[in-house]
Structure formats: C-alpha cells, structure tokens
Design a protein around this nucleic acid. Structure first.
Lengths: 217, 217
DNA sequence: ACTGCCCCTGAACGGTCGTTCATTTGGCAG
DNA sequence: CTGCCAAATGAACGACCGTTCAGGGGCAGT
C-alpha cells in the first residue's frame, strides 16, 4: 500500500450553522483543537483543518503564520488559563493546606474532565513545537508543579501532612509529579458518557491525594 | 519555509560496533524504539530508522511487512512481557492483598523506570496502529487493569482496604485507572540522572497507593 | 565451479505535505 | 453605483513520504 493510511476516517463535515456564527479565526482554532485531539498534530493536515470549518487550505495563512504557530497559539492559551485558575483556586481557599490541596485538585481535575479535548492536545502535542515555544509551555507547567510543592511543604511544616519518605527524606517534588500525572491523565480516559460525574470525579481524586500525602483528618 | 522541519536534528549516527554484533532485525527493533521514543512514530521515517542501524530504506522490508507491522511488533512484545511479569508478581506475593498490591506496584514502576524508552513508545504510539492491532493491545491493558481491580476487590471484601467512595459507592475501576495512570507516567519524567533510585521510586509509589486505598497498617 | 538463496542496494513510483501567490470574491464606505 | 481592500480561492511548487523492484554480491551446499 502506497497511500497514506488515515488514522481515523476523515475530517468532520463542516456544520454550516457553526461556520457562520463566529469569526473564522475562532472556527479554525476550534477545528484544530478537535482534529489534533482526535488524530494528532503531525497527521492532521492544513487541508483537514480548513475543510472542517468550510474553507480551503490557503485561507489559514490569512490568520496564522504557519501550522506551527496555530498549534502554539491554542496550547499556550489553554496552558495560561490553566495556570491562572490553579493559582486562583489556591489563593481563595484559606490557609489550611488541606483545603488548599482539595481546592487545587477540584479545579484541576474538573477542568481536565470538562475540557478534555483541550487538555489532551496541550499535554500530548507540545513536542512538535520548536525549542523556544516548548520552553515557554514547560515554564508554565513547572509553575503549576511548584504550586503543589508549596502546598505540600506548608502541610509538612505545619504537621498536617505526613507524606511517605523516599530514601529517608521527603521528596516533595516527586510526590507532586506523581499526583499531577494522576490528575492530568483523567483527560485520557474520562468520557462524558461515563458513569461518574465530574464533581464526583474531582472529589475522588481529592480524597486519594489527601490520603496519599497523609493529611490529618 | 517549504522544507519539513525536523523535530529533533537528525537520526543517530550508526555505531559500527553495535551494528555488527547482533542480527539486523534486532538492530532495527532497537533503532525503531529509540527513534519512536524520541521523535514520535509519524515523523520518524523508514529511512531514519534504517540509517540509524547502517542500512538503507529497502532493507526494512526483508524483515517486516510494513512500518506499521514494525511498530506493532515492538509494542506487542513490550506489552506482552509487561502483562506477564505483572501477573507473575501478584501470583508470587501470597494471599494478603496489601502484599499483592505492593508487589504489583514494585514490578510495574520498576519496569517503567528501567525500560523508559520501551514504555514510552508502548504507551504513546498505539494510536497509529490499525484497528485490529490496537484492539489487541488494549485487551492486554484491560487485563492488567483487571488485575489491579481484583486486588482492590479482595482488599475491600476482606476489610483490609477502605478506599474512598464515589457518589456513595466504591468505583474500583476508576481508582485502578487513577493509580495506573500514576505508575505508567513515571516513564515520562523519570530520568536515570535523577536523584532517586528505581527501588526507592517504586517504594514511594507503593506507599502512596496503599495510603490511597486506605490499607490497614 | 556452479547453483540457489538470502540479504542488501538505490532508483523509481504515486502520493501527500506545508506553503506561496496571482486571481477572484464580497461587503461596505463614499 | 463605484472603488477599495481584507479575505478566500485553488493551482502550483519543491520536498519528502512508504513501498516496490530489478539488479548485485556473498556464502552454503553440491
């Protein structure tokens, strides 16, 4: 076989009602999100994206400099928003590190359930960006991880958390990474058709996190 | 720019000593693992893989029917081996569900640290396989998940585990998924250059898991 | 020395890719 | 009704893709 095999059958048919309501640049962003999430950046062609919003290939370049810039645009906006709401959730949760952690998990997991598609793209497709752009995204991720580390540290210092030891000492960074992996990848298997609602999902994850770090009741 | 931008600079230079010691089919497998892990299946070309082991494009088809089959071959062997050692670890851990869970986590995390590259490819690149092949892999994953679910169920029924509730009842499948996500994705950020040894890593994760499911001490 | 077989080579094929660009379109200010 | 310009078109370009295939050693068995 010499023809390139489509990973899934085809691009979605453009929905006329959707096409005409919002400005084309928004339609492009939405279509790109959908397609990148479903089939992955490298195999989604510019032609696919534009067909999905009822335009032709060339029109992309009236709005974005390149396919690369389009990807960075949608990832960066998602990531920036995530960082913002995480910090906001912690700031508005009082002083108790248990409440802070619970608030963080609630917001983080809820978002990764509700905006499954966006989360999926932002977490899976960074690698295709060039070095400068990828560094930008990774900085934001580190910032989010450090928020978790700060909560853990406060919990340990106040005696409210008693996390497991690693080689005789506490490695809060590793624990934060392990927890974040867990929360992030809900977006890989959670489906709106699933049995569990988003609220219950985020409560389950918050429960597990508080137990994992040995929070006092 | 009309030239396709390489995601990372180039294929590795073939190491002569490595090339001549093992049969070519093994060299191809190894090179494919490395390249798929570093740059991703769709952007790694057949020419890249073969150049990395000192051959030319056409020689691939003396050993594999297609690029697809090559990917499935290396993923399936990794996945099969994982399923095997997981079941073996549980079988050899006695009757206590706490010991079973600990043994499972130890083997699973250790493998994902030690064979980072293989785990990365097996977990990230399945989507490129055709439907029949991907179903095969997913079956194996479900089997592994069900091993975890069975351990949890035994723990609950014997009163040794007290996992968090979800909407009033226990959703052991969701808990198993959450834990497996955590263990699987060590391979995404654990580096041999890291401060933590593999053994301590797997102990940390086992600790967190036992706490998360509310294991009695 | 010859045959048959396995493996490799490298040109070639049909296709798709991201991007460019001359041209056309369509809506609105004057 | 006219002129204008941002936005869309679709053919074209050069590059590279996975795969095929005719040809060419090298080596085992006879």
């Amino acid at each position: 076989m010499t023809k390139r095999k489509p990973v899934r059958t085809a691009a979605a048919v453009p929905v006329a009602a959707e096409r005409e309501q919002r400005p084309p640049i928004e339609a492009i962003r939405a279509a790109a999100f959908q397609q990148f999430a479903e089939r992955g950046y490298p195999v989604v062609t510019v032609r696919d994206i534009m067909k999905a919003c009822g335009l032709t290939q060339g029109a992309l370049y009236n709005h974005f400099k390149s396919k690369d810039e389009l990807l960075h645009d949608i990832i960066a906006s998602t990531q920036g928003e995530l960082e913002r709401i995480c910090q906001q959730a912690v700031a508005g949760a009082g002083d108790d590190p248990r409440a802070k952690l619970a608030a963080f998990v609630r917001v983080y997991v809820m978002r990764h359930c509700r905006l499954r598609v966006e989360a999926l793209v932002a977490n899976r497709e960074i690698g295709w960006l060039d070095a400068a752009r990828v560094a930008d995204i990774r900085r934001s991720r580190r910032a989010i991880r450090d928020v978790v580390v700060a909560i853990l540290r406060q919990g340990v210092e106040s005696g409210l958390f008693d996390p497991p030891l690693t080689g005789g000492r506490q490695d809060l960074k590793a624990i934060a990474m392990a927890l974040l992996d867990q929360w992030t990848h809900v977006s890989m298997w959670y489906g709106p058709g699933g049995q569990i609602a988003e609220e219950e999902m985020s409560r389950l994850y918050a429960d597990m996190a508080l137990r994992a770090v040995g929070a006092r009741p």
